[in-house]
């Protein structure tokens, strides 16, 4: 399942796209993110499977939560994307 967490406001669209079919529940994104954007939750459809999610408190302010890793230009590779071996994480902006 492709989960788009985030929002669109007057300044743009800010979504983190988590592909739970690719996610293996390793939790490396949870550790890699300096702002604690990610968490692990039970997958609602597969029994006893854990998947990554964007924590509730960050969903309305992703632009700000991610800004320490995403300056306006010249951004280095994002720690969460680098940490994710199955390449399950993408940013819409």
């Amino acid at each position: 399942m492709k989960a788009h967490y985030g929002y669109t406001d007057g300044s743009g669209s800010y979504y983190i796209i988590l592909d739970t079919d690719r996610c293996n529940g390793c939790g490396k994104c949870v550790e890699a993110c300096p702002q604690g954007v990610f968490g692990l939750v039970d997958d609602e459809f597969e029994e006893d499977v854990r998947v990554a999610t964007v924590q509730d408190e960050h969903r309305r302010k992703l632009k700000y939560s991610c800004s320490s890793c995403k300056p306006t230009h010249g951004a280095p590779p994002l720690p969460c994307v680098v940490a994710c071996e199955p390449a399950a994480i993408a940013h819409a902006w």
Partner: peptide, 12 residues
């Protein structure tokens, strides 16, 4: 009824 994708506008 199993979700394959979703997009949530959580702010406005």
């Amino acid at each position: 009824g199993k979700v394959t994708a979703f997009l949530m506008n959580d702010k406005c």
